[in-house]
Amino acid sequence: MKSAIRATAIAAAIALTGCATEPTPRTSSTSAPSERVTAYQTAAPGIDTGTLIVTRDSGFIGGGCFYAVSINGKLAARLDTGESSRFIVPAGEVLLRAGRDPQGKGLCSIGKSEWTQRETTLKPGETKLFRLSLDMNGKADIQRADDE
């Protein structure tokens, strides 16, 4: 009996460990639809810009909810799992935030006030890749990604 309980506990721990989100290769991600990409899609005339590409991880955690990306205090996109979006941003200091979709309803509205924030410096003409990931509790993070 004890060995059956122990085996069940080990199986549950292994299953839960596998539920974390995993990076989505940029080449296999899909573009977020335009109705959920809300800012930084065109360059303002006469302003040096760079490009940010944000790709949301794939995985079970948070899979039923959109997660948001904010750039310099402006909601830029609401991403589903495996989606990415490209943003044309003024060069210089850039503030990125990731969190629950501010338009989320029901369970997707829990924790809407919790955001993770990162800063980066974007040079004119530079492209930087970022990854929106989720921990086991559904808390979002945004971090630099590999160029895949």
Rank of each mutant, 00 (worst) to 15 (best):
A9G: 14
S28H: 04
C19D: 09
D48P: 02
E35W: 13
S28L: 12
I5E: 13
A15P: 02
I14E: 14
V37K: 07
T8C: 02
A13M: 11
T8N: 05
L16T: 10
P45Q: 10
I10H: 04
T24F: 05
T38Y: 05
I14V: 15
I14H: 04
I47C: 01
A20I: 11
Q41S: 10
E22M: 06
P25E: 09
R26I: 08
A44F: 01
I10Q: 12
E35H: 13
R26M: 03
M1N: 05
I5D: 12
S34H: 01
S3D: 03
I10T: 11
P45D: 15
S31F: 06
T38I: 09
M1T: 08
I14S: 06
G50S: 09
T8H: 04
R26A: 06
A44G: 03
A4S: 05
A4L: 10
T21Q: 14
A13D: 11
S29W: 02
G46L: 05
I14T: 11
I5P: 00
S34T: 03
S34P: 01
G50A: 08
R36H: 12
T8W: 02
T8I: 04
E35I: 11
R36Y: 10
D48N: 12
V37H: 11
T21M: 07
A7P: 02
A9C: 14
T42S: 15
I47N: 01
A12K: 05
C19I: 13
R6A: 15
D48S: 13
S34I: 02
C19A: 13
Q41G: 14
S34Q: 03
S29A: 14
A39D: 06
I5H: 09
R26C: 00
I14Q: 11
A15T: 09
T27Y: 07
T8V: 07
A11L: 14
T38N: 05
A44N: 07
V37F: 08
A15E: 13
T42G: 06
T17G: 14
E22T: 12
C19M: 15
T30N: 09
G50F: 01
G46V: 05
T8M: 03
I10R: 10
T21E: 10
